[in-house]
C-alpha cells in the first residue's frame, strides 16, 4: 500500500506555477504490478521520482510501509563522469555495504558490457546505461517490495530484454513493479493494473486493459 495524502507538485515557470499533480489523495494497493499511463509531460517520471525519493512533493506527502527502490531510469542515478564500476561502488557504499567488490562483480556479470564497465558512463549508449542501472538492483539483496522502472527496458536489445524479464519474474517473485513505458505490449508483459495521469490527478484501475482503454479515449486522437 502506498498512500498519497494531499499530494501537490508544481514547477515554477515563467507563466507561473505549473501543476503536475494537485491535491492527490489515493491509496495504491500494491498487490499487482502497475503500469503508469499518460502522454509526454503529464508527470510520469515525476511520479516515479517522488515515489523513489529523488524529488520532493511541493505539498502533502507519500508514505508506505513497503521498501521502495530508487527510480531506475536512464536519466539520473548514474553519474556521467564516473565509470560504471565507480557508480556501482558508490551505490553500494551509500547503502551501507562495506564489501563492494562482490557487488561490482555481480553487476559486471549481469551488465555484460565488458571493458566499458571501467569507462565513464557518459561514453555509454543508452542500452549500456540500462544494463548497468538494471544490474545494480540485481546485485544487492535489497528485497524491494516495489521496483520503480522508468522507460528502462525499452532501450535494451533482445538479449537484455529477455534477461531482465526473467530476472523481474524470478528473483523478484514478491516484488511488484511500478513501470513507465510507452509500449502497451511491454506494459502488458509486466503489469496487471494501471495508473492513469489525468487532470493533474491519479486514477487507479484494477485492470490494465481498462486503464489502456481510458487512456485511448482521453488522449489518443482518432
Amino acid at each position: 500500500m502506498i498512500m498519497f495524502k494531499q499530494l501537490s507538485k508544481y514547477y515554477p515557470t515563467k507563466q507561473g506555477r505549473r501543476y503536475i499533480f494537485k491535491d492527490v489523495n489515493l491509496s495504491l494497493p500494491m498487490d499487482k504490478s502497475i503500469g503508469v499511463l499518460g502522454p509526454n509531460g503529464a508527470g510520469k517520471s515525476t511520479l516515479i521520482k517522488i515515489l523513489g525519493g529523488a524529488d520532493y512533493p511541493s505539498k502533502g506527502k507519500v508514505t508506505s510501509p513497503l521498501k521502495v527502490s530508487w527510480p531506475l531510469g536512464l536519466r539520473g542515478g548514474l553519474q556521467g563522469s564516473m565509470s560504471g564500476r565507480e557508480n556501482v561502488r558508490f551505490v553500494a557504499r551509500i547503502h551501507g555495504f562495506t564489501d563492494t567488490k562482490m557487488v561490482e562483480e555481480k553487476v559486471s556479470d549481469f551488465a555484460e558490457i565488458g571493458i566499458y564497465f571501467d569507462e565513464p558512463v557518459k561514453t555509454y549508449s543508452s542500452g549500456m546505461r540500462a544494463r548497468v542501472a538494471f544490474g545494480l538492483t540485481m546485485a544487492f539483496d535489497f528485497d524491494f517490495d516495489v521496483l520503480l522502472v522508468d522507460e528502462l527496458t525499452a532501450v535494451g536489445d533482445t538479449n537484455f530484454k529477455k534477461k531482465s524479464e526473467k530476472v523481474l519474474k524470478n528473483k523478484y517473485e514478491n516484488t511488484k513493479v511500478i513501470m513507465v513505458n510507452h509500449s502497451a505490449n511491454e506494459l502488458k508483459k509486466y503489469c496487471q493494473a494501471g495508473l492513469l495521469i489525468k487532470d493533474q490527478n491519479l486514477h487507479y484501475f484494477d485492470e490494465l486493459d481498462h486503464a489502456l482503454q481510458e487512456y485511448q479515449s482521453c488522449y489518443v486522437t482518432h
Partner: peptide, 24 residues
C-alpha cells in the same frame, strides 16, 4: 519536509546519522 521515513531500502538498518556518514 515531506516524510519518507517509512519508504526505506532493505540494506542494513541504520539511523539517519549513520546513513549520512556512509553517504559522505
Amino acid at each position: 519536509m515531506p516524510s519518507f521515513s517509512e519508504l526505506t531500502h532493505a540494506a542494513p538498518s541504520r539511523n539517519a546519522f549513520k546513513i549520512m556518514c556512509d553517504t559522505v
